[in-house]
Simulated scan of single mutants.
Amino acid sequence: MTRRRPVIGVSGSMIMAEGSYAVQAAGMRNLEAVAEAADCLPIIVPGMPDHAEIGELLELCDGFLLTGGRANVHPSRYGHAETEKHGSFDHGRDAVVLPLIGAALEAGLPIFGVCRGIQEMNVALGGTLHPEIRELPGRMNHRMPPGEKNHEVIFRKRHPVRLTPGGEVARLVGAEEIVTNSLHGQGVDEPGARVVIEGVAEDGTVEAISIADARRFAIGVQWHAEYDACADPVHCALWRAFGAAARDAAIRRERRGAA
């Protein structure tokens, strides 16, 4: 019998289609990366806390991809007051994804956080975020070029990231320095409990983390690993490792069910 592909829950974001119609959406590159680079089946997890029940998601999914998004984690989630610098919010996504992270870690399911996703992982484990990294002393502007529409320009590689020698990310990608397509305004400030810094930009901004004592893949990156996921060697290595962890989780689930 052919074994089914692992199911990956992909965090959806609430957007207004045509300025008036609320939808839950995930970018095509995220879905394609799950399907093609990780060889898994993507399904969108809606930011609907009254309907997206955590226990059901854990039973349905073999891993979770936490995507990027325009909206930011609401600062009240990490004990800060809201300001204009914090930008827009997606309260529904906060209410689903933040508790899902802890539950998935406890269940031993793999997690891959990309852009906003790394920030969600940090907040879920008790860490904080800074609303404007570029305003910190010595930091550079990590935001995308304003008004740019050309994706080759938007997602071009911008700066090096030094990976922790011997760390989980360095081991997976086979390098201790890479160049990334990081695009963000917010960033990790105080790391949460169990959050291990795996990589920093040349200005000291946290660009990669792992979660200590996670039973399977639990990595967050501040850059857009969904871009060129099958061809870029660094991105491909991360997606393959994520997919392998999801397959392992799915196989073990099947074995428990058959016992």
Rank of each mutant, 00 (worst) to 15 (best):
H151D: 14
A95M: 09
L66D: 03
A258Q: 11
D39W: 11
A244M: 12
A241R: 04
A208M: 06
A229K: 02
P99Q: 09
R252T: 12
P131G: 04
A22Q: 13
E190W: 10
F242L: 07
D213S: 05
E190K: 14
A193L: 14
I15F: 13
T83Y: 09
C61Y: 03
V153H: 07
G63P: 08
A170F: 02
A81P: 03
F89T: 00
G187D: 01
H151N: 13
V173D: 06
R134S: 04
R93T: 08
V173G: 00
L129D: 01
H159P: 06
M140H: 07
T180Q: 01
P49R: 01
S11R: 14
A231F: 13
E198S: 11
Q119R: 08
A26N: 07
N30K: 11
R29F: 12
R139W: 03
M48F: 13
F217G: 09
R255S: 11
H51C: 14
E202L: 00
A245K: 07
R256M: 11
I118W: 07
V45M: 05
R139M: 06
L41E: 10
L65K: 03
A250M: 13
C40K: 01
I44F: 09
H74C: 00
G185S: 13
L238P: 07
G79P: 09
N72Q: 04
